[in-house]
C-alpha cells in the first residue's frame, strides 16, 4: 500500500455547476507520486473543467483539492507552486522568444535567479528545444509550440504535471516524441493527462479514469481496462460455407451471425474452447476454413459501451 504522503494530488467530491448544468459532479481523484493518470472521455465530458479546477484556474462549486497535502482553495499560492499546467491551448506569448518566455515563466514561479538559467537550459534539452532558444514563438510550428507549452509546465519541477490534450494537432512523429517525454516525466513527477484518444492512454498511462457527463464511469489500471474487455469476437471464414443454422447447430455457437457470404462472427470468451470446436467441425464437414481470427474488442468499443450504458441509465432514471 502506498503511504499517504505518496499522494501528490487529491480531489474530494469536486463539483462544478454552470448555471443549472453540472459540468463535473462529485468527482474523487487521487494521484500517486510517479504515476501517469489518464483522464479519458468524449469531448464535453468535463475533462478540461476538472483540470482547470485542479490547477486553480476555476473555483469549484463545492469539494476540495489538496496538492501534496496543501489545500488549493485555502493556500492557493503555496499549492500552485507545486503544479505545472498545460491548458488545451498552450498559453504562449507569441511575441517572445523561447528563452524569454521560459525565463519569464521561471520568474513567475519564483525560481531564484541563480537557478533560472540552468533550469531553462535543462528543460529546453528535455523538450528538444535546445536550438530554438532564440526563435520567436510565433514562428514555431505547432509541434514546437506544444513543446514550449510542456516546457513551461515542467520548468519549475512541480510535483504534479497536468496536461490537457498534449498531443492534439500534432503529427504522428511528434505524438510519439511527446509520449516518450511524458513517460520520462513520470520518473520525477506525477502526471495527469487528458485525452479523447484511447491508444494514447494505452501508450503512456498507468491508470485510467473514464469520464462521461462530469462523472467518472470507469476507474482502473491499464491492465484492468484490458482485462475488462476479455470478451472477444472470432471471425470465421469458409470457402464452402454451411448455412447459419447448420453452423450454429454443429459448433454450438447459438449467437453466431453471418457478416457476409462465407464469413461468420462468433462471440467467445478468452478461456472457452469455441475456436477448437469450430476447427473440428470445419474439418469434419469440409467447409474449407479460410480464416479464423480473433477480433479483440478495442478500447473504443469499451469506451463506447461505457458511455452508452451511462446514457441509457441516465435516461432510465429520468
Amino acid at each position: 500500500m502506498p503511504q499517504p504522503t505518496d499522494i501528490t494530488l487529491s480531489a474530494h467530491r469536486l463539483t462544478r455547476r454552470y448555471g443549472t448544468g453540472l459540468a463535473v459532479a462529485e468527482l474523487d481523484l487521487a494521484l500517486q507520486r510517479g504515476e501517469v493518470l489518464g483522464l479519458l472521455g468524449p469531448n464535453g465530458a468535463g475533462k478540461s473543467t476538472t483540470m482547470q479546477m485542479l490547477t486553480g484556474n476555476l473555483a469549484p462549486s463545492s469539494g476540495s483539492i489538496a496538492v501534496c497535502g496543501i489545500d488549493l482553495l485555502e493556500q492557493p499560492l503555496l499549492a500552485k507552486a507545486k503544479i505545472g499546467y498545460l491548458p488545451e491551448t498552450p498559453p504562449l506569448y507569441r511575441e517572445m522568444t523561447v528563452d524569454e518566455f521560459l525565463t519569464f515563466c521561471g520568474r513567475l514561479h519564483r525560481l531564484p535567479s541563480i537557478e533560472l538559467g540552468s533550469a531553462v537550459q535543462e528543460v529546453k534539452a528535455r523538450c528538444g528545444l535546445a536550438d530554438m532558444g532564440r526563435r520567436l514563438i510565433a514562428h514555431l510550428s505547432k509541434g514546437y509550440q506544444q513543446r514550449v507549452g510542456i516546457a513551461q509546465a515542467i520548468l519549475h519541477k512541480p510535483d504534479v504535471v497536468i496536461l490537457d490534450e498534449p498531443t492534439v494537432g500534432l503529427d504522428p512523429n511528434q505524438i510519439r516524441e511527446i509520449r516518450t517525454l511524458i513517460r520520462e516525466l513520470s520518473a520525477n513527477h506525477s502526471v495527469i493527462l487528458s485525452t479523447h484518444i484511447l491508444p494514447e492512454v494505452e501508450a503512456v498511462c498507468d491508470r485510467v479514469h473514464i469520464m462521461h457527463q462530469g462523472k467518472i464511469v470507469f476507474s482502473d489500471s491499464i491492465e484492468g481496462l484490458r482485462r475488462s474487455q476479455q470478451t472477444e469476437t472470432l471471425l470465421v471464414g469458409f470457402s464452402r460455407p454451411p448455412t447459419l443454422a447448420e453452423f450454429q447447430n454443429l459448433t454450438g455457437a447459438s449467437d453466431a451471425q453471418i457478416l457476409e457470404k462465407g464469413l461468420f462472427k462468433v462471440h467467445c470468451t478468452a478461456d472457452s474452447t469455441r475456436a477448437e470446436t469450430i476447427t473440428q467441425a470445419a474439418t469434419a464437414h469440409a467447409w474449407g476454413l479460410t480464416q479464423l481470427s480473433p477480433e479483440r474488442t478495442s478500447l473504443e468499443d469499451v469506451f463506447a459501451g461505457l458511455t452508452r450504458t451511462e446514457e441509457k441509465n441516465s435516461q432510465a432514471s429520468v
Partner: peptide
C-alpha cells in the same frame, strides 16, 4: 482571447 491568462492564473501569484 489568446488564453494566455491561464499561465498567470496557474502561477503562484495573486
Amino acid at each position: 482571447r489568446n488564453r494566455t491568462i491561464a499561465l498567470l492564473l496557474s502561477a503562484p501569484i495573486s
